[in-house]
Design a protein around this nucleic acid. Structure first.
Lengths: 208, 208
DNA sequence: ATAATATCCCCCAAATTGGGGGATAGCTTT
DNA sequence: AAAGCTATCCCCCAATTTGGGGGATATTAT
């Protein structure tokens, strides 16, 4: 199934847009269907373009890339969208990923990386540049020097999932009073005195 | 600063271990300090080896890679660990990342990818093979067809953070009774009748 | 052996929860 | 214009949960 990949570029910088266009047009099985200087200019044409992959900038006149992302995803559910931007703040990265981006590349990415990424997302995969991967991986990392014991961490995680102490007690086959003891110790260790503060502090310090 | 990178391999398959060793030894600025068939065999030597990067298999006799990861991280906080394994289940990937892995490569990775990854994690970055990236990105993706309104989602997120209805009301500058109304609607839409069920269901279906 | 951990117990007042029953205003869709 | 959805506010009530006190005991680690 060596079908061509239909590609659309949405990028407001004329020079970059033309550069990417010529770059991608040189790839034998890539077809750059259309390029646009903004999402607002693109939106009426997109359904007709039927792109397999959209390379989407974030900073654009009018609707920005992050705002456009969920709208495009709803209109064209089978189109994979790769964010291609100079920005790599954690907030933007997470927002893009939650909104359904299939890839997130920063503009220092080499031609080969961009081409790889297009192929990758087209086959259902994910693609990120290394600085984005760093951000994403860092967000998973737990603090390995938590003051909480294994049991305390376990219980605090269940609390963070909205379970009450009695529910937790049932699940762990222990007495509700035992759960209470653990919770008291958690509060002392985290220097808080309520559920929500405990969750907030523990998340901030990556104990859970 | 073109300093050499000190590398240790922990991999139980003799053929693969030797293969990686010769592969990495050929890179000018890489020094393969030592290789081991298991973590249990490696643990006494590791402090003396002072590796910058450890390539760590998961499946091994004795202590497995996932179990070894936090132990190594605590003993050698400045060493970056790359998981190199045939397994790529979401559970293993998330566990490895939370335990402090700086990279996660599956064994179909090319030599160039492995070498890149070693350099990347050494400079504080992150590295994943594309199938791992897919898993990670998928975990961020929210369901764009949530039945919950923006306000309801906002409130459910705060509930999931352990906040009470009155705290939420204060934060949103609305009456606690309004929060209660929203919560009731959320329960109806999700077909649940408690906080914990709502959080569980919403997370499963990726509404929050 | 001293400390930490995990387990269990009692008392009590205040807050929270979930289930009922409503209402109103604004906005969109038909 | 009517119907529907959304966001906002209001009342009642019983049951549960919470957080702050005070403890105890057995196992595990250091």
């Amino acid at each position: 199934m060596g079908k061509e990949l239909r590609i659309v570029l949405i990028e407001d910088d004329d020079v970059l847009r033309m550069g990417y266009q010529s770059l991608l047009s040189d790839v034998p099985d890539f077809i750059v269907i259309n390029t646009y200087g903004s999402y607002d200019l693109a939106k009426k044409q997109l359904p007709a373009d039927q792109p397999d992959v959209i390379l989407l900038d974030i900073q654009m006149p009018g609707t920005n890339g992050i705002q456009a992302l969920p709208v495009i995803k709803k209109a064209l559910p089978h189109t994979n969208i790769i964010i291609l931007t100079v920005f790599d703040s954690p907030e933007l990265v997470f927002e893009a990923l939650t909104m359904g981006a299939g890839g997130y590349l920063t503009k220092n990415s080499s031609a080969a990386k961009i081409i790889d990424a297009i192929r990758e997302v087209s086959s259902g995969g994910g693609a990120m540049s290394t600085n984005v991967a760093r951000i994403v991986m860092h967000s998973f990392q737990k603090n390995l020097n938590s003051p909480l014991t294994k049991r305390e961490t376990e219980i605090l995680e269940k609390i963070a999932n909205g379970q009450t102490k009695s529910q937790i007690a049932t699940e762990l086959f222990i007495d509700p009073e035992t759960v209470r003891s653990h919770v008291k110790n958690i509060y002392v260790k985290l220097d808080v005195n309520s559920k929500s503060e405990a969750i907030k502090t523990a998340k901030e310090r990556k104990f859970i």
